[in-house]
Simulated scan of single mutants.
Amino acid sequence: MSELSEKQRDSLDEDQFAFPKERKEPLSNASHVRNAIARFNQVRDVSDDERDAAWGRIKRAAKKHGVEVNEDSWRDLRAKK
């Protein structure tokens, strides 16, 4: 995965994160999108509504960066455990 420096991460707009309020899981390239999906269930202290919104941002970023997403909902990620 391509690492973001602190300066690069700080320069990202809120809409470039799956969880913008927490500034967690950047979505700036395909590698970050795949990582956001893999780490989705590790994000703590967010509501289901925030997860729904984050999943929508991830799906849009995945389409933009050509990342295939097999799950229809973030809830499907839980089922894979």
Score class of each variant (00 low, 15 high):
1 M>Q: 11
33 V>I: 12
28 S>P: 11
29 N>Y: 01
72 D>H: 10
42 Q>L: 13
16 Q>F: 02
41 N>V: 06
49 D>E: 14
55 W>R: 01
39 R>E: 12
67 V>Y: 04
28 S>H: 07
51 R>F: 02
5 S>Q: 08
62 A>I: 04
65 H>E: 11
62 A>V: 03
48 D>T: 12
39 R>W: 00
79 A>M: 14
23 R>C: 02
18 A>K: 10
30 A>P: 11
9 R>N: 12
62 A>Y: 02
72 D>A: 12
20 P>L: 04
49 D>Q: 13
24 K>N: 04
18 A>I: 03
52 D>N: 14
61 A>M: 04
17 F>T: 03
76 D>W: 07
65 H>P: 10
69 V>G: 10
54 A>C: 07
62 A>W: 01
58 I>W: 00
67 V>P: 04
24 K>R: 13
59 K>F: 00
78 R>D: 10
11 S>M: 11
7 K>C: 09
3 E>M: 09
64 K>C: 04
63 K>P: 00
48 D>R: 12
69 V>S: 12
52 D>S: 12
77 L>C: 12
6 E>W: 05
56 G>K: 14
6 E>V: 08
71 E>K: 09
38 A>P: 01
55 W>S: 05
50 E>A: 13
74 W>K: 10
68 E>W: 01
43 V>I: 15
61 A>F: 00
48 D>V: 09
73 S>R: 14
60 R>K: 15
11 S>P: 04
26 P>T: 03
56 G>L: 06
36 A>L: 06
46 V>T: 13
57 R>Y: 00
64 K>R: 15
43 V>F: 04
58 I>A: 03
10 D>M: 14
69 V>W: 01
71 E>P: 07
17 F>H: 05
57 R>K: 14
